[in-house]
């Protein structure tokens, strides 16, 4: 999220103003025309100069270090026969034994991996573009008042926890829910949605779209607001239609943020909604609903096979990291900003 707030995105609307100067690496100060070469400040000088900002960042850093970086140390149990009552200190070291599950063809693991990939694909194809489309639609609303009301209504589901969302869907679409009770009391056949494993992916995809699309439009709307109005005016003078304006001005303006979010999405593409799935697993069975995260939970916390679960979780994290790095590099190769530059 933090990266998004950098001014960089604000400038995105100006159609890649300085894509030319990027290839030369980070040492040269960015900028286009010839600039006076500033002497590079020493580490200490920069520290003194930025002290206020650094102090402000300190509490946040501390939280990240304690709860993100130090916690990473816990991954050591992936190499142990970890027993909670013995702790990390006294559990047996087993090296890579726990990682055998990745290659041994364990049917449960493979099934979880397959389901994860299928859901990831569905989310990328259907969930990811949804807020972009919605943002474009909202943006085209002329009345500010209407837009604000619609936006508020769309944001609301984001603040509901998954327990509530799942319960709402159950109450409406469940076997004895609103819809089916209505159908039955009028002598029609009920529709099996919630307990139907064939409809499961459609169900969870719609749940995610319903819950988070509104919220996810915020970023895109911010970008849209930043696009230079004069570009639209100029194109209108040239006779461009609304559709051509969207294609040639709006979408290119949104491209950096879309790419950045896509890269970030790749990073947790193997995390496909633990809470949402574990709450609904019983109704449809593990065959379609067991994903890597629920597999880790069922094996580790419930089954007591903590080491194996940690190994799977660790590999999952590493794959996510690799995907982000590769995607970021690829973005650079296409002249995009990506998430960050080293």
């Amino acid at each position: 999220m933090t990266a998004v707030e950098e001014p960089r995105t604000g400038r995105a609307g100006t159609l890649r103003p300085k894509s030319g100067g990027r290839g030369s690496g980070s040492r040269t100060p960015s900028g286009t025309g010839p600039q006076p070469v500033r002497r590079r400040q020493s580490w200490w000088q920069r520290l003194v100069r930025d002290r206020a900002v650094l102090l402000l960042a300190l509490p946040g850093m501390a939280v990240i270090i304690v709860f993100q970086y130090l916690a990473l140390g816990g991954n050591v149990i992936a190499f142990q026969d970890y027993q909670p009552y013995l702790g990390i200190g006294r559990s047996l070291w087993v090296g890579f034994e726990n990682f055998q599950i990745l290659f041994s063809g364990d049917p449960e693991f493979l099934s979880a991996l397959r389901n994860t990939l299928v859901i990831t694909l569905l989310q990328t194809v259907f969930v990811f573009p949804a807020p972009i489309i919605l943002a474009l639609l909202l943006h085209s609303l002329v009345s500010n008042r209407v837009r604000q009301i619609v936006q508020s209504v769309l944001y609301l589901p984001h603040f509901l926890s998954w327990v509530i969302v799942v319960a709402v869907f159950q109450q409406v679409l469940g076997g004895a829910g609103l819809l089916n009770n209505f159908l039955r009391s009028h002598g029609w056949e009920p529709i099996d949605i919630i307990g139907n494993s064939d409809a499961f992916y459609a169900l969870i995809t719609s749940q995610v779209i319903w819950k988070d699309t509104g919220w996810a439009t915020i970023l895109f709307l911010a970008v849209l607001a930043g696009i230079d109005k004069s570009l639209y005016e100029a194109s209108a003078v040239d006779g461009a239609s609304r559709w051509r304006q969207t294609w040639h001005i709006t979408l290119p303006g949104m491209r950096p943020i879309i790419i950045m979010l896509l890269i970030l999405k790749l990073g947790d593409s193997l995390s496909v909604g633990f809470e949402q799935l574990i709450l609904q697993q019983q109704a449809v069975g593990l065959g379609v609903s067991d994903v890597l995260d629920t597999y880790v939970y069922n094996q580790g916390v419930l089954g007591g096979f903590w080491g194996v679960a940690a190994a799977v979780g660790l590999v999952k994290g590493l794959i996510g990291l690799a995907l982000v790095l590769v995607a970021n590099k690829t973005a650079h190769a296409f002249g995009e900003e990506g998430v960050y530059r080293a």
Binding site: E108, V284, N298, G303
Partner: peptide, 18 residues
Amino acid sequence: GQIGEKLASVESDILAGR
């Protein structure tokens, strides 16, 4: 627990007709 859970999963699949 682990092997029982697997069998329980088969059981629910059968009852649900899967």
